Amino acid sequence: MALSKKLAKKPASSASRRSGNPAKAAAERKRVEESRAAANRVSRVPRKVKATGSPRWYAPAMVTIMVIGLLWVVVTYLFKGEYPLPYFVEHHASDWLVNGNLYLGFVIMMLGFLGLLRWR
């Protein structure tokens, strides 16, 4: 019962009130339609959009770096680690750096891959 009294005493909003005057109702409808039209109005003047992505050369450069790394690894396997840099085989024949050319090839490929992760 208390809830129904609160609901009954609640004042009506201006949108839900109706005027008995048809001219006022028509003016109200026109005002609402004009405000909607103003909200939906779009400017047809073209504007230059600022480029937010990466430059056009970025993705091809990163793919090229990855291919260079792949070729580095292939050349290392074909020449048993002596090329492209013979330093590792000559100076580190007995330790883990004997595979330094492989490490460099994979690092070069990873740099290209990490660069592609930042491409937009």
Results as ranks from 00 to 15, higher is better:
103 Y>M: 14
22 P>H: 00
32 V>N: 10
63 V>H: 05
7 L>H: 10
66 M>L: 03
16 S>H: 00
85 L>P: 06
70 L>E: 06
48 K>F: 08
71 L>K: 02
60 P>G: 01
98 V>L: 11
108 I>G: 02
54 S>H: 04
98 V>R: 14
93 A>R: 07
2 A>M: 07
91 H>A: 06
87 Y>E: 07
40 N>V: 11
22 P>S: 02
84 P>H: 02
6 K>M: 07
61 A>H: 00
94 S>R: 12
79 F>G: 06
65 I>K: 01
22 P>C: 02
50 K>I: 09
46 P>T: 14
30 K>I: 09
17 R>N: 09
98 V>E: 12
53 G>M: 13
45 V>H: 10
51 A>F: 07
29 R>K: 15
60 P>H: 03
55 P>W: 04
87 Y>H: 13
34 E>Q: 14
81 G>H: 03
58 Y>L: 02
114 L>P: 01
109 M>P: 00
93 A>W: 07
116 L>K: 04
14 S>T: 09
119 W>A: 15
23 A>L: 05
3 L>E: 11
75 V>G: 07
62 M>I: 01
72 W>I: 04
101 N>R: 02
52 T>L: 12
11 P>Y: 00
107 V>L: 15
114 L>S: 03
83 Y>I: 10
25 A>W: 03
13 S>D: 02
59 A>S: 13
86 P>K: 14
44 R>G: 14
112 G>T: 00
19 S>Q: 05
111 L>D: 00
51 A>M: 10
26 A>Q: 15
79 F>L: 13
77 Y>S: 04
61 A>D: 00
111 L>R: 01
56 R>T: 11
6 K>I: 11
64 T>V: 10
26 A>D: 04
76 T>L: 01
65 I>A: 03
112 G>Y: 01
19 S>C: 02
42 V>D: 08
64 T>Y: 03
61 A>W: 00
83 Y>G: 11
21 N>Q: 03
84 P>D: 01
88 F>N: 12
14 S>N: 04
73 V>E: 05
34 E>Y: 08
36 R>W: 13
3 L>I: 08
62 M>E: 03
19 S>H: 06
77 Y>N: 05
96 W>L: 13
58 Y>D: 02
119 W>F: 15
30 K>A: 15
